[in-house]
Write a protein that binds this DNA or RNA. Structure first.
Length: 461
RNA sequence: GGCGGAGUAGCCAAGUGGUAAGGCAAUGGUUUGCAAAACCGUCAUUCGAGGGUUCGAUUCCCUCCUCCGCCUCCA
């Protein structure tokens, strides 16, 4: 597996640095509302990466956090009149439901920020001891950027116009007086009235951890000072991941993340997604429009992760047809395979699809490879068909796609079956008007009758 | 303004220094009482615009246009 690394700006082979398990961390959701499809683009691509590694025989350790204490969770929990933990638990459960629907493998470890306050305080103490952080007069603690010369490497700060402190001058910020440098970022936020009951005691007084610190502390707890890959949406490159590097390098030593995997943003109808434009979709929103989570997953992997993806509702309909076509192809292949035993473990006609996936996670190329692979295996029989089907299924699992099943007769309501039978008789009697009327009635009830030469089938529309 | 990314058929979207995968939609045919479904076909002389390098560029270089993201707590 080769993957583009944000830090070195080059594709690198992914091999576990400990020689056995590929350990990676993903910045998880802030649980103050339902996650939207833009969030899920990131989580789905991270899931595909994991599945591809595992399909290729690499063991993984996947850590993804839950951000359950920050400005937004505190603000909205109070607006909802709920204790913070009750509020975030509800949204965490909703997130898990959506993840399962989208076929995301649960992370091996899913730590939450509020459950790691002591670790965060300990990390701040270390940073103060090493001279990388300082307590300000108001009870907040800040990271001293000037103490870490490597600051800005990930986001190429030295190549940017941003002169630390300059752009902040015009900004009104009540904390400014307390910082040595305007660019220093907060590790511990002193308690404020609007925080309500959400504060914790610390050596610097009551308060709560800063957002950036949460990830660093949880990474140190579960992955140590060095691990294989850190991942998130592109918007996290600066300042979040830049700050994590500074905190962790100074507090823990080690190399921190050996590689960085950032997923580009999702656009809707060619523009930015936002609530005010009414184009911010959740999984529930799509379900209301009759689209399944698997259709959403297909769309989300339909573009390369480093390119913006233009999401449209039409693309979901296209995904439905594409998934149905894959399912049909797989059924045809299975029928030709019969009871044959698989004799080889390679990908056969789906080798190109597998190669695409391992070439910087080229998911659209992989999807194309599935269709061409099915086309190229159209004449395979017996064990050759069985081997091809095995390759197809391995690639499909690596993508995390689950194909729609053909509806069984048992799922069709009796009254629908009766209507269909009546129509079939009318049709046999060449009573075309009655036949067409019953066909329309079935359609109105959501069922499509497909006429065959000897028999018919019913499918939900 | 700085940094980063993107512009490929009606839509979504791969890819390559040697002449454009795949999906959706559309459309022709077979089939059908008519449809649908199914099956077999068709569907970019061209890759934002203009220059340059090259035997040859969509792919490399330059300029320009447009769009998106980040620039202190947004995946």
């Amino acid at each position: 597996m080769r993957l583009f690394d944000t830090l070195s700006r080059s594709a690198r082979d992914l091999r576990p640095i400990d020689g056995s398990t590929f350990r990676f961390y993903c910045c998880g959701p802030t649980v103050y509302g339902p996650a939207h499809i833009g969030n899920f683009r990131t989580f789905v691509l991270q899931d595909v990466l994991r599945r591809a590694l595992e399909t290729g025989g690499t063991r993984t350790l996947h850590v993804r956090n839950i951000t359950d204490v920050d400005d937004k969770t505190i603000r909205d929990s109070q607006a909802a009149g709920q204790p913070l933990t009750d509020f975030t638990r509800g949204w965490t459960e909703k997130f898990h439901t959506d993840c399962e629907a989208l076929g995301l493998l649960p992370p091996h470890i899913e730590p939450s920020a509020v459950e790691h306050i002591p670790q965060q305080i300990a990390m701040i103490e270390t940073l103060i001891e090493t001279g990388n952080a300082y307590a300000a007069g108001d009870g907040s603690v800040y990271f001293k950027i000037s103490s870490f010369p490597a600051y800005g490497r990930l986001s190429h700060l030295d190549e940017r116009e941003l002169e630390l402190g300059k752009t902040q001058n015009a900004r009104s910020n009540s904390d400014e007086y307390a910082k040595d440098s305007l660019s220093d970022f907060v590790l511990w936020k002193s308690r404020k009235p609007e925080d309500g009951a959400n504060f914790w005691p610390s050596p610097w007084g009551d308060g709560r951890p800063g957002w950036h610190l949460e990830c660093s502390a949880m990474i140190a707890e579960y992955l140590g000072d060095s691990f294989d890959l850190h991942s998130g949406g592109v918007d996290l490159v600066f300042p979040h991941h830049e700050n994590e590097i500074a905190q962790s390098a100074c507090a823990c030593g080690g190399q921190f993340a050996a590689g960085w995997f950032h997923i580009a943003h999702l656009l809707v109808d060619g523009g930015k997604m936002s609530k005010s434009l009414g184009n911010l979709y959740t999984i529930a929103d799509l379900a209301e429009r009759g689209h399944t989570p698997m259709e959403a997953r297909y769309v989300l992997i339909g573009a390369h992760y480093r390119k913006p993806l233009n999401f449209t509702l039409d693309s979901l309909s296209g995904a439905r047809e594409a998934l149905a076509k894959l399912a049909k192809g797989a059924r045809n292949l299975a029928a030709r395979a019969g009871d044959s035993v698989i004799s080889s473990a390679d990908f056969g006609p789906f080798q190109a699809a597998w190669d695409s996936l391992n070439d910087d996670l080229n998911t659209p190329g992989t999807l194309g490879g599935l269709f061409t692979g099915l086309r190229d295996s159209a004449n395979l029989q017996g064990s050759e068909a069985a081997a091809a089907l095995a390759g197809f299924n391995r690639v499909l699992r690596a993508l995390g796609l689950v194909l729609p099943e053909e509806p069984g007769a048992a799922e069709i309501p009796q009254e629908i079956q009766d209507l269909a039978a009546t129509r079939w008789q009318a049709r046999a009697a060449k009573n075309w008007s009655e036949s067409d009327r019953l066909r329309d009635e079935l359609a109105a009830r959501g069922w499509q009758m497909k006429d065959g030469r000897e028999d018919y089938t019913l499918e939900p529309k």
